[in-house]
Every structure is written in C-alpha cells, then in structure tokens.
Amino acid sequence: MKNYFVLAAAFMLFAVSSSAQKFFTKSGKIEFDATTSSSPEKIEGVNKTATCVLDSKSGALQFSVLMKGFAFERALMEEHFNENYVESNKFPRAEFKGTVANNDAVNYSKDGTYSVTVKGKLTLHGVTKDVETAGKLTVQGGKVSAVATFPVLLADYNVTIPGLVADKVAKTAKIGVTCALEPLKN
C-alpha cells in the first residue's frame, strides 16, 4: 500500500515537471515601424493582442496577429494603414508558422537567456514568404519570454506605397516582437 503511494507521488511529480511543454500568450506585443530618415514623424503602430504558442519539445513556434489591432497615434495614419496598405478588411490576420531552428540549445528547465534562430513562413496581406531571424528566449522561473526584431520588405507582401509619400515611408518595415509566455496547463 505504501509503495503505491510513493509510486503515485512520483508519477504526479513527473506529470507536473513534464506538463510545461507548451508555452503561450494571448497578449504578445508586436511593433510595426516604417519610419525612415526622411519621414516627417514616427510611423509606428503597436499591437498588444498577438497570440503566440511555443512548443518547447519540438521548437514549433506560431504567431497570430489581427491587423486591426495595431494602434497608431494618429487616427489618419491608422486608417491609411488598414485601408490602403494592409487592407485589413480583406486580410484581417497575419500569421507566422515556424520553428526555433536551434531548439536543442535551449534548456527550458534552466533559467538563462538563449540566442535562437527562428525560421518559418510569414503570411501577411495574403502573401506567404519564408523568413528567418535571430531572437532571444529567456527562461525564468518556468516562464519563457521571447524577443526578436526582423525586417519586412513591404513590396514582398504586395503592400504598395503611393507615389506621393513613397520617400516618406520606409520600404522595409521593422517588426519587433515581445512575448511573455506562460506554461500551458492541460
């Protein structure tokens, strides 16, 4: 009888330690910056409702972000972003599906900061392209935070900039990602 207890306890301990395999957030932050040296002001929007899931075992990484969720300081800029550039009514969502290429180098059970390479496919404005970027994963107290910045050439995703403002909007937008991921309890 006692043995069963030990066995059950051991099993429960095992279950707890192995359950934190997937990490997620629904309030990831994605920043969009298309400011160039000739821009009269900052052209940047921020979205704080990105969904992100990371599977620590396989390194699979997924993002989903609603284009209408990008907030710009100027109402006019936000409308132009939605209506003329990313056409968020037609393409409401941007998605990234990829993997942490060097996932073996990350020890998810040990606190620390790990440099990672993320590879995958980004779908934006109805166009899917391969992207690769360097980022950082920080493991602390069973939680994982993910930070990365990468460039997106707007023309790659059929986002056209009207001639009138062509020299005032960057052709390559900087995308910044900051996510605090929590372990997913099953």
Binding site: K22, T49, T51, V53, L66, K68, G69, S88, R93, L184
Partner: peptide
C-alpha cells in the same frame, strides 16, 4: 469597444478582440 477581429484556436480557445 472596436471589433478588431477573431483569433480561432482549438488548443487555447478562440478569442474575439475588442480594442479601445
């Protein structure tokens, strides 16, 4: 709030997002 859209997710549960 302003409806920003819907994120369908079977594992995490789907969400409707309202901004502002």
């Amino acid at each position: 709030g302003i409806c920003s859209g819907y994120n369908a997710d079977e594992m995490l549960g789907s969400d409707l997002i309202l901004n502002r």
